[in-house]
Write a protein that binds this DNA or RNA. Sequence first.
DNA 1: CCCCCAAACCTGTCGGACAGGTTTTGCCTG
DNA 2: CAGGCAAAACCTGTCCGACAGGTTTGGGGG
Lengths: 207, 207
Amino acid sequence: MPGDKLPSEALLSKELHVSRTVVREAFRSLAAMRIIELAVGRRATVAQIDHGAMSLMIEHGVHTDQINIQQIYDVRRTIETRIVTLAAIRRSDAEAAEILALAARMQASIADPAALLEHDLAFHTALARASRNPVYSLLIGAFQGITRQTWPIGWKSRPTQAARDLMVTTHVDISRAVAASDPQQAMVLMSLHFDESVRALLTAGLS
Amino acid sequence: MPGDKLPSEALLSKELHVSRTVVREAFRSLAAMRIIELAVGRRATVAQIDHGAMSLMIEHGVHTDQINIQQIYDVRRTIETRIVTLAAIRRSDAEAAEILALAARMQASIADPAALLEHDLAFHTALARASRNPVYSLLIGAFQGITRQTWPIGWKSRPTQAARDLMVTTHVDISRAVAASDPQQAMVLMSLHFDESVRALLTAGLS
DNA sequence: CCCCCAAACCTGTCGGACAGGTTTTGCCTG
DNA sequence: CAGGCAAAACCTGTCCGACAGGTTTGGGGG
C-alpha cells in the first residue's frame, strides 16, 4: 500500500545477488514512474499515483511530433464531457462551491492571462476530482503540462473581447450546471467550450 | 526526433560536472518513462511513445487500491465509444479488413479463453490505431495490462453460452459497422458492449 | 571500390568509499 | 516506570576506478 517501506538497497542487493548499482537503477526507474518514492536517508516507499511522469510522456510525444495539439484536444474533449457529466451527478456541495468559485476567479482575472490560465487548469482539475474517478484526474493532470504550453496560443487567437468573454462565461455556465446537478446541460456546455477551443486553435494555424 | 542520439554518458558527465553515476540514473529515469531508449554499447536514443510505462502506472494504481476496475471501465467506455466513431470515419480499407478479421478470429476462438482475450485486445488496439489519434492508442495500450488481468473475471461471469455468444457477436457487429463506415451504429454497439461488460463485472462482485 | 578486422568507443555491472540525512537504540533522569 | 536525549546504526546520494562485453569506426588489403 502507498507509504509502505521497501527493503533497503543494501539488503535487496544482497538477496538478489547484484550490486547496489543495479538495485539503485531499478529504484530510479520505479521512482521515475512514480511507483515508488525516494528520499535521502529514508527507505524507499510505495507512492501514490501521480500525473508527473505521464505529463512528461505526453510532452515528449508532442515535442517529437508524434502527437499534435488537435489530437490532445480531441481526447480532452472526449473525457471532459464525461467528467462534467459525472461531476454534475456526484459532486459534493463543497466541490460545487469550489467549482463555482474557480469559475468566478476566472472571470475576475480575464485581463491577466497568466492567472486566467492557472484558474482554468484548476477548474478542470476540480471537475475531474468531482467525477470521483481518479483515472480522470490522472489524465487531466497528464495533459496539464502541454496545455500550459499551448493555452496562450488559443488565447491570442481570441482577439476580440466578445470571444474572450464567451470563453470565460462558458466556464461560469458549466460551473452553474454542475452546481445545479444538471449533467445534460453541463455536458452540452462543455462540448460547446471544446468546439470553440478547437476552432480557436485552428484559427491560430495549429496543425 | 525519435532515433536521434544523445551524448554519451562520459561526455555528459564531463560537461555537467557530475559523475557518470548521476548521468546513468538520469538516463534510467528517462528510459523508464520511455522517453529515451538504452542499449548496450550503443548511445542512448530518443524513443517513440510507448504505453509500457503508462501500463505499469495504471497497474500500480489498481494494485494499491487507488483505482478500481469499474473506474477503469468507465474511462475505457468513454474513450472507446469515441475511438470507434473516429475509426468508422477514418479507417483505411486495410484497417477495416484487419478489424473484420480480428472479430472473426474472436468468433473462431470462443472456446479458448486465452486466445479470445488476446484477439479481443488486438481488436481494440486495431480500432484505436484506425482512429488515427496516437493518444487513443497510448491509452488503450495503457489499460491493456490491467485488462489482461481482469478479463477472465468478466468471462467467467458470463457462464451461459448465450452470454458468451453475445459478447463475441457484438464485436463482429462493431467491426461490420466500422467497415460500413457507420460511426453512429458503431458507437451504439460499443456502448452496448461496455454496458454488458460492466454488468458482467458487477455480477462477478468487482468493487 | 568493397570487405574485413582491429582499434576506439560505449554501456552494464561491480566494489569500495564517504558525506550527509534519518531512524533506532539504549541510557539516564525525573 | 515513563519520557527525553544523545550516540550509534542505518540509509541514501554521489564519487572514483575498473573491467567485461557489445557496437561503431577507420584503415588496410584484396
